[in-house]
Amino acid sequence: MIRLKNVAKIYPPNIVGLEGVSLHIQPGEFVSVVGQSGTGKSTLAKLLFAEERPSRGCIEIGGWDISRIKEKDIPILRRQIGVVFQDFKLLPKKTVYENVAFALQVAGERPRRIRDVVPRVLKIVNLDQKAGRYPTQLSGGEQQRVAIARSLVHQPKVLVADEPTGNLDAINARDIIDLLQRINEFGTTVLLVTHNREVVNRVKKRVITIDDGVIVSDIEQGRYKI
């Protein structure tokens, strides 16, 4: 599903983000990416949804080589990949419903389909009762669930979550991870970047450890060990 060949990302002037990363993720996998701060985890995530482009190497998602993706194709890529962030990235002037609907509207979906899909994904994250609220009227955990609901509207094959629990307490974090696992069970490939030892140990799936831009270990059924 995701294939990286010898990928390097050098930020100007010559800061190493990633160096010589090769990686293959099968469809339906749940992969945790761990590592110290500033080692290149977010860089890896950003390369996957084309927020950054690799300086060297090749990145394929579902057979699509996005290493040198054209500006106009980026929206198409992003509609096929769900993204979730530490800071939720919700539109503050839109309600929960509108935030989720927005991801469909930008793709030119018909109103009928939007009316159908939005309540469904809000139900999955258990927020259908709070659809009319604005993000500021929600707790952190709820906001993150809205973000996850939004990432689901296109039924993505891949979900990239960069420290989705970073701003949440333990209980909310667990809810979010459970949610991601449930999404994974329905067939979506999940790439979870995290700092959180408890989270990794709980998932008990493949763990990739990055240090200084390089993959230093890649273990099936791994545990957090830094």
């Binding site: 949804f49 980026i74 929206p75 993204v83 990235k89 539109l91």
Partner: peptide
């Protein structure tokens, strides 16, 4: 600024 970044993240075209 931030809003526009978010719109692009969820797949909005520049035009949209």
């Amino acid at each position: 600024k931030e809003e526009i970044g978010i719109m692009k993240l969820v797949g909005a075209t520049n035009w949209f």
